[in-house]
Computed example of a mutant assay.
Amino acid sequence: MERPKLILAGGNGFLGRHLAQYFTQLGYQVVVLARGAAASGAVRWNGRTLGAWATELEGATALINLAGKSVDCRYTAANRSAIVRSRTDSTRVLGEAVAACRNPPAVWLNSSTSTIYQHTEGSQPANTEVAGLIGRNFSEMVAQRWEAEFWLAAAPRTRRVALRTAIVLGADGGALPVMARLAKFGLGTPQGSGQQWVSWLHIQDFCRAVEFLLDTPGLEGAVNLCALQPLPNQEFNALLDRYYQPKWHLPQPRWLLEIGAFVLRTETELILKSRKVAPQRLLQAGFRFIFPSCEQALADLLPQLP
């Protein structure tokens, strides 16, 4: 029996590695599209123009696009342009490849981000796919342009889902190893006011949610990929602090974070924006989380860190 084929565009990062391993174990033939020096077994593409890689989509069961320049950088004019283009160009050219298929992928999951919703403070309700408030700053506009390009694709025979993904927590990549390292040195303290909401998702639940979306024909459109319980930044950092129990604690006021972000060539928005998001559509469709609370997720992941 022929194995189902999964195309994973931009699949050589943290999320892509986990998805490739997860779906390979499920019996899929996973084809990774990678820029530059392709990883072992990957197919080379540039994320902008059609090429020989496009034939891989013919007859595929599913297409997942994770391509996009990291936002962990200074928002210079050049970086802003690269952030937008890396997302819209890759989505556009995948749409062209899907449109050219005689037997296109049955489903296409395209990355987006929970950052699409506006800064949500205090007791304001969490943003859902139906009632969420879309923001208007740079990062939020990037997400809107990304999704707009996705819906413009001529793919009438392919079910499409935009993955509005929150911060994914894992022991071997993403944000958690960096946050844990800071907490070891006394920076498990509130960042800025500490009141900004953190929406998150365990890497295992991320992979399971992607599988669930592929296997649920009635789900299309935007879907929030996040856990049940967002929590304030100060509570998230308190969980890290409780685990590492450093000998001292250093305050992190906003002015100090701005200096640190400048030195590290990044932006404070990554930690100061309040992301309060709810996975309404996943829950309504029957998805169940293994790690519904951040305390459970960190209890599983932190012992795995070096």
Rank of each mutant, 00 (worst) to 15 (best):
T216Y: 05
L219P: 10
F206A: 01
I203C: 01
L228Q: 14
V178F: 09
P190M: 00
C226L: 00
W200H: 10
V198D: 03
F212N: 08
G186K: 07
G194V: 01
R181D: 03
D215Y: 01
P190F: 03
K184E: 12
A180M: 06
L228Y: 00
H202E: 12
Q234V: 03
A222P: 15
Q204T: 14
C226Y: 02
D205I: 00
L201E: 09
S193I: 01
V178Y: 05
G186Q: 09
V210K: 00
F206M: 10
F212D: 07
V223A: 08
C207A: 12
Q234S: 13
A227S: 15
L201R: 12
L225C: 05
G188H: 10
Q191C: 04
R208L: 13
L214V: 10
V178G: 03
L187E: 04
L182I: 00
K184V: 12
E211K: 08
F212C: 08
L182W: 10
A227T: 09
A183Q: 05
N233V: 00
E211R: 14
M179V: 06
Q195W: 05
R181H: 06
Q191L: 13
W197A: 06
N224Q: 01
N224C: 04
A227N: 09
K184N: 03
G192N: 00
G188R: 03
G221S: 05
A238M: 06
G221W: 04
E211N: 10
A238V: 08
T216R: 13
V210E: 05
N237A: 06
F236C: 11
L239W: 05
F185M: 13
E220D: 14
D205M: 10
F212T: 11
K184L: 04
L182S: 08
H202M: 10
G188A: 11
N237L: 12
C226A: 13
Q204D: 15
A222D: 10
L231N: 00
F185V: 12
Q195D: 14
T216I: 07
A227D: 09
A238Q: 14
T216H: 15
G221D: 05
A209R: 02
C207V: 03
Q196W: 04
V223D: 00
N237W: 08
L182P: 05
A222Q: 09
T216K: 12
Q191H: 00
F185C: 09
F236L: 13
V178Q: 14
T216E: 14
Q191R: 07
K184D: 09
W200P: 15
W197T: 06
D205F: 06
L228R: 14
V223H: 08
W197N: 03
E235M: 10
F206Y: 15
G218T: 14
F212R: 04
G221K: 04
L214C: 11
W197V: 01
L228D: 15
A183H: 04
I203P: 03
L225R: 00
P232C: 12
L225H: 08
A180L: 02
T189P: 08
Q204M: 06
